[in-house]
Write a protein that binds this DNA or RNA. Structure first.
Lengths: 200, 200
DNA sequence: TGGCAAACGGAACCATGTTCCGTATATTGG
DNA sequence: CCAATATACGGAACATGGTTCCGTTTGCCA
């Protein structure tokens, strides 16, 4: 909420005096984020760019100037929620009884996030170059958190230790694909996977 | 190898006298299957149709006449291997010690098949209408086999009983997505999932 | 208010799947 | 062996969706 100016990091904005964007540009960026969020809900994360542009009442060029790739737009839309998920990690670890339980609850959070965003899980695993940023962001932000939980559970001797956080995240992400289908319960599948993690 | 004439079922060909296709048509179908198989290996199952056509030295129209959808082509290319996998089910059940072990081995077979076919796992989960046939064929052919193994293990009291064969297949298929990445070991993830299946 | 860099819109371009139709040819009856 | 015809072929053309480009518009500051 505090960062009124664009996407630069806190560190960068502290350095730079005021490369303040034009008013219409800032307005459009906000409009675009809203339009994209709405479109993602109405259709899915791979809703056509043209449709987002139409919703926002801007040209497609404008989208690409603000968000160089589709992934950047997705990241911008979901940044808050990803942050929240990341921050929940340490909290759960401190709160919940056992590390394994904390891990399970955190994964739950992540899964809930994924399955409620139509097409996001699919996009996350896509090897399409355009989604590279998305992939990277999610991994950069969440893998360390996951690793911490995993490590704690491993130290407590609750789970097998031969699995990296990246792999676990990937696996969970994959299991969330196709969660829209009522015949497939992604949550349960992940639950089973997590169960398989614990030693005997 | 025995069915010289096209894709009609054994039953159908027994009824019909001889709706024998033209020689060039049969030749082209074979050429196409080879070209497609090669292209799938060289790139992945979503190699552009035009490229398959070029490899086979035919026009794209020819592909579509023989295989109405891309999925039909994929199914045709992999039919033998899917059959083999399906037939291995009962064999394993009869051979291997416990039903749970048989299930694990069968899943192994399936996973091996999937991870060695670049992009096949991805295509399998795609909600793209064009892949409907693919999805259906795999499910029709393999789910019953999986169900039999699952049932046996359930009866033996080795695993939880609240999971359908369709879900398990979907989950396993999903876990195989992105198996090309060396940092992600799909086989291990599936192993963990199967482990999570067993009761305590 | 005038000048100009920033931002805009959307046509144009590229890649891909899919359809359509004029042309070529295998097959078969005479 | 030839001609007639159904069958099959090739590839241009169409549809869709991402991305780029550039002439035009507009906010901002002197």
């Amino acid at each position: 909420m505090a960062d009124i100016d664009g996407g630069s990091t806190a560190a960068a904005s502290r350095r730079e005096p005021a490369p303040r964007k034009r008013a219409d540009a800032r307005r459009n960026e906000a409009t675009l984020l809203d339009a994209a969020a709405a479109a993602f809900v109405a259709s899915s994360v791979d809703v056509p760019v043209r449709e987002i542009a139409a919703r926002a009442g801007v040209g497609v060029g404008t989208i690409y100037r603000h968000f160089p790739t589709r992934a950047d737009l997705i990241v911008a839309v979901y940044r808050h929620q990803v942050e929240a998920c990341a921050e929940a990690g340490p909290t759960l670890l401190a709160t919940v009884g056992t590390p394994h339980a904390a891990l399970a609850q955190w994964i739950d959070l992540f899964v809930d996030f994924l399955v409620t965003k139509h097409g996001l899980a699919e996009a996350l695993q896509s090897d399409n170059a355009a989604f590279q940023t998305l992939h990277t962001y999610f991994l950069d932000r969440l893998v360390p958190v996951c690793a911490q939980l995993l490590e704690a559970a491993a130290v407590a001797g609750e789970i097998r230790t031969d699995l990296s956080a990246v792999e676990l995240m990937r696996g969970v992400g994959n299991l969330c694909i196709g969660a829209a289908d009522p015949r497939y319960d992604a949550r349960r599948m992940v639950e089973i996977l997590i169960a398989g993690l614990s030693l005997r």
